[in-house]
Design a protein around this nucleic acid. Structure first.
Lengths: 186, 186
DNA sequence: GTCTATAGGAGGATAGAC
DNA sequence: GTCTATCCTCCTATAGAC
């Protein structure tokens, strides 16, 4: 029951992940999805309308992945460890992180807001895990959990950047596991 | 005596920093620099030739800035602190970091290599500072300095991403200063 | 070295038929 | 809802004169 609208969003999300928003043209989305032009512009009056839907889909995927690793009955440190050491396709890049360097995305509130919101939500998932670890004495308690959460998110996002820059997926793992080691008995 | 060639590189570097490589057209560079088309294609047979020169210039600037904060007679911890807490225009973004999400850059060795190389050199500047701090007992010595350097670089790169995503420059400062706090007496 | 003219293709749509 | 035709602009050059 995947209608054309859904196909366009899914294909758009994939292409935008791979190439960015600006570099992804309506024509490419049509070709890759097999949906015609008439259908495209019927469902999405302008490119930015598809962009908003596709980016929102990618943002949801990022939050869902974080929820999967950060939620559960395990101690906070275990959840934090799972988040940081989780396997990631470093060279593929974050589904939304790179869009923060796409001018057209930055300049359109409908495109950038879902991204900021997704990062905010991931930080909010990290925070209780970190706080729990702090209360258990597993993580230094003299630093605010919210700021530690920001740092953890940054390490992962920056790890993607370094890994792609040097075409070396191990750099993300290295950054994340070092951050974990630093947190775990700092 | 800034000749047209130099003007094109400088203008190109600025525009590529602001909008990315793919989104920067030769026409824009000509308009912004006041250099004509004939001159442009005389000095740079193709867009990628200007791109290589402009990106190399931005990469050099990143390395030079790191050198300025990480080099000196001060103890390693002080130099590391200076690097992490250095004022950065978070919303403007890293001059080269965002290009790792530009397909055309990733796919052209002449464009991506200077970026990977610059990050490698910054990591190499961080390493001795960290090592010195470790020998002084100011930073945990059970983690390899090279891996800590990768983490430090990642925090800064990721801080740019988060700051831009949420249009909040303080996120980069928060991530960097938290990383410093975690390192400084972990 | 630099200028102007030209050109094929892609990008982002709009229009009207079915 | 979807199709095809058409449109104007910008992109990335190339050509030939000065």
């Amino acid at each position: 029951m995947s209608d054309n609208r859904t196909k366009l969003i899914e294909t758009g999300a994939e292409l935008i992940w791979q190439s960015g928003y600006t570099a992804t043209s309506p024509r490419q989305v049509m070709a890759a999805s097999g949906v015609g032009q008439g259908s495209f512009y019927h469902h999405f009056p302008a490119k930015t309308d598809l962009g908003a839907a596709a980016i929102a889909a990618n943002a949801s995927a990022v939050v869902a992945a974080a929820e999967a690793t950060l939620t559960g009955p395990e101690p906070g440190l275990v959840r934090l460890r799972r988040y940081l050491l989780d396997e990631r396709d470093a060279l593929a890049g974050c589904k939304i992180g790179g869009l923060t360097y796409d001018r057209a995305v930055l300049d359109d509130p409908r495109l950038i807001e879902p991204i900021g919101e997704a990062f905010r939500r991931v930080a909010e998932l990290l925070e209780p895990a970190i706080q729990d670890a702090q209360e258990a004495g597993a993580v230094r308690a003299d630093l605010p959990a919210a700021e530690l959460a920001t740092m953890v998110l940054s390490v992962v996002q920056g790890g993607y950047v370094l890994a792609r820059a040097r075409s070396d997926a191990s750099l993300l793992r290295q950054a994340a596991s070092t951050a974990y080691a630093l947190l775990a008995r700092g």
